[in-house]
Amino acid sequence: MNYKSLDPSKTYLITGAAGFIGFFLSRKLLEQGCNVIGVDNINDYYDVKLKYARLEQLKPYETFTFIKGDISDKATITNIFEEYKPNIVVNLAAQAGVRYSIENPDVYIQSNIIGFYNILEACRHYPVDHLVYASSSSVYGANKKVPFEETDFVDNPVSLYASTKKSNELMAHTYSHLYNIPATGLRFFTVYGPMGRPDMAYFGFTDKYFAGEPIKIFNNGDFENDLYRDFTFIDDIVEGIERLLSNPSVEEKAVPHKVFNIGNNNPEKLMAFIGALEKCLSNALGKEVEFDKVFEPIKPGDVPATYASTDLLQKAVGFKPETSIEEGLQKFVDWYVDYYLKK
Rank of each mutant, 00 (worst) to 15 (best):
L270S: 02
E278R: 04
I325M: 15
K253I: 00
T190I: 12
S324D: 14
V191N: 03
N265H: 13
R243T: 05
E239C: 09
V317W: 10
V317G: 03
L227W: 01
I237V: 15
V255D: 02
E327Q: 14
F233W: 11
S324L: 06
T206W: 10
L313E: 11
F319V: 03
K320G: 00
N247C: 11
Q314W: 04
S282T: 10
D311S: 15
L285K: 09
P256M: 07
D236Q: 11
P304A: 03
L312M: 07
P194F: 01
I298W: 00
F205L: 05
I237W: 01
K258L: 01
L329V: 14
F319G: 04
E296T: 06
Q330N: 09
T323P: 01
V317L: 06
G240L: 06
F273K: 02
E278L: 04
G275C: 00
A272P: 00
I241M: 12
K299G: 00
K320W: 00
N219Y: 00
P198N: 05
K253S: 12
Y202I: 11
K315D: 15
I217L: 13
V333Q: 09
D226A: 14
E278N: 06
L313C: 10
F291M: 04
F210T: 07
A276G: 01
L281Q: 09
T206I: 08
H257S: 13
V191C: 08
V317Y: 04
A276T: 14
L312C: 01
I237G: 00
S249Y: 13
G240M: 09
P214D: 05
L227A: 12
G275F: 03
F233Y: 15
N283A: 10
D311E: 15
N247G: 10
L312T: 01
P267Q: 08
L281W: 11
M271G: 01
F223Y: 13
V255C: 08
T190W: 12
G263Y: 01
K253D: 14
G193C: 07
I325V: 15
L227H: 03
